[in-house]
């Protein structure tokens, strides 16, 4: 093995590219997939590259944009910052599990009704988050803008905005996303 260079980086193929794979079973949108994956594969790349479920997007691959948001066992996370092999046996819901073009779910329809997107690239992540935050508010999970930590949380504009802030939208559709979420929340209440 070569010694590391001045900046501490190794330049040796044998050290860097061992070929370690692991078996892993993912339950995605109700379908079981038995995979053997390079340990380095993120959940996002497993979905996009191995299962061709490209609804979850790669905007930054570093947890800084939220385009890859999916639900794992009912909890929203960034699929780019978790290893697929760590999700053996987990239930994963992606945008493809929300609805199809022919049969949209209420949040997807609300996004169309309110023009809550433009280029569409952040949209699947926005919809996955939007769905999850309504549950998080119902469950009483506090946020940065929650005024009182000991009472039930109101579904205010501020709560929605804060909770959706992990999903960047460079087209700037935030005002319409807010309306879409309210539309769904009101229909449910």
């Amino acid at each position: 093995m070569h010694p590391p260079d001045q900046l501490g980086r190794h330049r040796d193929a044998s050290a860097a590219c061992g070929d370690d794979h692991s078996p892993c079973t993912l339950h995605v949108n109700g379908t079981r997939h038995d995979l053997t994956l390079d340990n380095r594969t993120t959940l996002l790349d497993a979905l996009r590259e191995h299962l061709a479920l490209t609804g979850a997007k790669k905007g930054c691959d570093h947890g800084q944009c939220g385009a890859c948001t999916v639900a794992v066992n009912g909890t929203r996370i960034n699929a780019c910052l978790t290893l697929a092999v760590m999700h053996d046996g987990d239930e994963i819901t992606t945008i493809e599990g929300h609805g199809t073009p022919e049969s949209l779910d209420a949040m997807q329809q609300a996004f169309i009704d309110n023009d809550a997107f433009q280029c569409g690239y952040c949209t699947p992540g926005q919809i996955c988050s939007a769905t999850a935050i309504l549950e998080e508010i119902r469950a009483g999970l506090p946020s940065h803008v929650t005024e009182n930590l000991s009472t039930a949380i109101d579904l205010t504009d501020a709560e929605i905005r804060e909770r959706m802030s992990g999903n960047l939208c460079r087209c700037g559709a935030y005002a319409n996303i807010l309306k879409a979420i309210h539309q769904v929340a009101e229909a449910h209440s």
Binding site: G55, L104, Q109, G120
Partner: peptide, 16 residues
């Protein structure tokens, strides 16, 4: 008029 590409985009089916 709502976007005619909307259904593909909100369902993750628009191919980038």
């Amino acid at each position: 008029h709502a976007r005619i590409d909307g259904r593909l985009k909100v369902s993750g089916q628009a191919p980038y």
